[in-house]
Simulated scan of single mutants.
Amino acid sequence: MDNIKNTVNYIKESLAGSASTASKEANKNVAKDDNASLGTRAQAAGDAISDKFDEQKHNRQADVHKEAAKH
């Protein structure tokens, strides 16, 4: 039963990490957009940094669940 829970948690964390990666990339593109206002670009840059932390957190958790599912 624990293996199933760890596998499900691995999948959930992997998907959350992928979503954070996509959001990070979108925010990076906005931050680089010369047509966007300075405030919008600054907000997008801050959001990209936050997304990067979320991405790393989810990927670490996915790795933990993946290893736990192996045992």
Rank of each mutant, 00 (worst) to 15 (best):
D2C: 09
N3E: 07
K5G: 05
N6Q: 08
T7Q: 09
V8G: 02
N9P: 03
N9D: 14
N9K: 09
Y10S: 03
I11F: 05
I11P: 03
I11E: 07
K12A: 12
K12N: 13
S14I: 03
S14Y: 07
S14L: 14
L15I: 13
L15D: 05
A16L: 11
A16R: 04
G17H: 03
G17Q: 03
A19C: 05
A19V: 05
S20T: 03
S20A: 15
T21K: 08
S23C: 07
K24N: 02
A26L: 08
A26Q: 07
N27Q: 08
K28Q: 15
K28T: 10
K28H: 04
N29D: 14
V30I: 15
V30M: 04
A31M: 04
A31E: 02
D33I: 00
D34Q: 12
D34M: 06
N35L: 14
N35M: 08
A36Y: 03
S37Q: 05
T40P: 00
R41S: 00
A42L: 13
A42C: 01
Q43Y: 06
Q43S: 12
A44N: 01
A45K: 14
A45Q: 15
G46T: 12
G46C: 05
G46S: 13
D47P: 00
A48Y: 00
A48L: 00
I49G: 09
S50V: 10
S50K: 13
D51L: 01
F53P: 02
F53A: 15
D54W: 03
E55G: 00
K57H: 07
K57P: 01
K57D: 11
K57S: 12
H58D: 01
H58P: 01
N59K: 15
R60W: 08
R60Q: 07
R60Y: 10
Q61Y: 05
D63C: 04
D63G: 13
D63V: 08
V64F: 10
V64G: 00
V64D: 06
V64N: 02
K66Y: 14
H71Y: 11
